[in-house]
């Protein structure tokens, strides 16, 4: 295995992250802080507790998930799309590197970046709301699994995208609505029965619910289902990437 190459790709991607530190780190922190101010302080103060948790604290897992999902996808998709766009992908393709090593390098870096942002947002949230984490190990496990899974989806988008517009399309038109409608800012039990049923078709519900369970010990769907959902998404993403490299689709002539 060419671990040196994987490490080189990983470091290169992390370097790009730190080179654009303002855009990479400060921007999600500021936007999340604004969510806390608006939803937590301004609106949350007028809302009842949800399942024994203040509204400000209740939205923390959803907020972290919102940022982590979008960051995982955008970091990974840009990471692989940019060398395709400027042509430097030739170097990766002609190097003695296997598909798995390439994926670990790019997806690993994107996942670590998203994880760092997620943890920083978590730290920031302690400044705004009183918060305790019921299952810290599970919380970290959910966070890591989500980062890896969605970084893989981002990697796929980056390979399939033909231009920058397409690169933004899925995160904007699919992921963000799914996260907003996936119980990030509410419990789906607060919805009318019909919408509760419809919500169960939203895959993000399972991620947010599982993640929230690790904080407060309460969930919209059973924790086993949440774990199964993450495993299924990861398997789907991995299978798609495997197929892309096997066929060379949109990556190798």
């Amino acid at each position: 295995m060419n671990l040196t190459a994987t490490l080189v790709i990983f470091r290169y991607e992390m370097k790009r992250f730190f080179r654009t530190i303002l855009q990479s780190l400060v921007s999600p922190i500021i936007s999340t802080s604004l969510y806390f101010v608006v939803f937590g302080a301004a609106i949350g103060a007028r809302m009842e507790e949800i399942e024994g948790t203040s509204y400000g604290a209740f939205i923390v897992p959803g907020l972290i998930m919102l940022t982590v999902l979008t960051q995982s996808i955008s970091n990974a998709s840009f990471g692989i799309y940019f060398p395709k766009f400027i042509g430097t992908i030739y170097e990766i393709l002609s190097a003695p590197v296997s598909s798995l090593e390439i994926v670990i390098g790019y997806v690993g870096a994107a996942a670590v970046k998203a994880l760092m942002i997620g943890l920083i947002i978590l730290a920031t949230s302690f400044l705004f709301v009183p918060l305790s984490i019921a299952h810290p190990v599970w919380m970290l496990a959910f966070l890591v699994m989500t980062c890896i899974c969605f970084a893989m989806f981002g990697f796929i988008i980056g390979i399939l995208a033909k231009n920058f517009e397409q690169l933004q399309l899925v995160p904007l038109l699919v992921v963000t609505p799914l996260v907003f409608l996936g119980g990030s800012f509410y419990s789906i039990s607060m919805l009318p029965p019909v919408w509760q049923t419809i919500s169960l078709f939203n895959p993000v519900v399972y991620l947010v619910s599982g993640f929230r369970w690790s904080f407060f010990g309460v969930a919209d769907v059973p924790i086993g289902l949440s774990l199964l959902a993450i495993a299924a998404f990861t398997a789907l993403a991995f299978g798609t990437i495997w197929w892309i490299f096997k066929t060379g689709y949109r990556i190798r002539d």
Partner: peptide
């Protein structure tokens, strides 16, 4: 391989990009 097009990451430094290439080929 030296490709036909001038395909280089514009914001990298010369020395860093050469080191990157060496690493990709698994060389210490």
């Amino acid at each position: 391989l030296v490709p036909q097009e001038l395909t280089l990451e514009p914001f990298e430094k010369v020395r860093d990009t050469v080191r990157f290439s060496r690493g990709l080929f698994g060389k210490p």
